[in-house]
């Protein structure tokens, strides 16, 4: 709901402030101390799950995030423990074996031992409990929004009466479309709790992302409250702010202990897809 509101307010604000203007300026910023950054999730899919370690940098450093290589990352999933493999060496990307999958309700803990200190520590820890939400993903449909020129993805799913949080991503022919915090859709369940979503719009796709012959798929994942809050804060703080809405900037909370950045998340996933046939396109555009 607040996503919709904020999107609409963008238009209100633009309409009212029709004399305003935006331009690039030069600003000098101080630099804060380096921190360790974690970015990765364990999901219920069977695949090599990726955990990426990097370092924070000065705000205008304008380079790829510096990778943290050679670290020993031990994954503990309540039943077993094993070390993740860095592939390729030097990339800062660490993987589970390809046949690994996560289970709802388990507690996933990462113990990280670095080869050199970052932020005065060589050892970090991150933990997340995978959600057990019993949701049902039925299907999706697309709706073309004429004046705006984009597609709305509408969702048919069921949310159980528990308190739940979701993350939704769209893929086109297996390639992710929602690859930034702004596009990934996240939601709590206050509006649907215990009900079907009945075709509510959950995200938008650009016109050129939906072409004849494409397979558009939606991955719906139940996530923990902490991971939801992280994604929510990430979106707010990496986007535009204006003095009308939203509070003062604040650091995005992290579950990487102590004094780390980023989030180690878990997802209970389900997928559905829509094949764009000629018949479908005709019916949607009319």
């Amino acid at each position: 709901m607040s996503q919709i509101i904020k999107h609409i307010f963008g238009i209100v604000y633009a309409a009212v402030i029709f004399t305003s203007c935006t331009e690039t300026i030069d600003i000098e910023l101080d630099e804060t101390y380096t921190r360790l950054v974690i970015d990765g999730q364990i999901s219920t899919d069977t695949m090599a799950h990726e955990i990426r370690l990097s370092k924070s940098a000065s705000y205008f450093s304008n380079t790829e995030p510096p990778a943290v290589s050679g670290a020993e990352i031990i994954l503990d999933d309540d039943q077993q423990q094993f070390v993740l493999t860095e592939i390729p060496i030097g990339s800062g990307q660490y993987f589970t074996p390809e046949n690994y999958f996560g289970k709802p309700g388990n507690t996933y803990t990462l113990n990280i031992n670095l080869t050199e200190e970052i932020g005065e520590s060589m050892n970090y820890q991150a933990q997340n409990i995978m959600a057990t939400t019993d949701f049902i993903l039925d299907s999706i449909m697309l709706e073309y929004r004429e004046p705006f020129g984009f597609w709305m993805v509408t969702l048919y799913a069921y949310d159980p009466p528990t308190t739940d949080f979701y993350r939704l991503d769209a893929f086109r022919n297996g390639v992710i479309l929602t690859d930034t915090a702004y596009r990934t859709s996240i939601s709590d369940d206050r509006l649907f709790n215990g009900n079907n979503t009945n075709g509510s719009a959950v995200m938008f796709l650009y016109e050129d992302e939906v072409q004849l012959g494409d397979t558009i798929s939606l991955r719906m994942a139940a996530i923990s409250k902490a991971y939801y809050e992280f994604l929510f804060e990430l979106r707010n703080e990496s986007g535009f702010s204006n003095p009308l809405f939203g509070g003062p900037p604040a650091n995005i909370n992290s579950n990487l202990q102590e004094d780390g950045l980023g989030f180690f998340g878990t997802m209970k996933t389900a997928r559905t897809e829509l094949i764009i046939t000629e018949a479908l396109l005709d019916s949607l555009r009319n």
Binding site: I27, V37, A181, L234, S238
Partner: peptide, 22 residues
Amino acid sequence: VTFPTGRFAIGNTIAPVYSDRN
């Protein structure tokens, strides 16, 4: 105002690390 004094990356998103408030 509060400005960033650092940044980090989550996937393709660049996120800020902020100074003390204001």
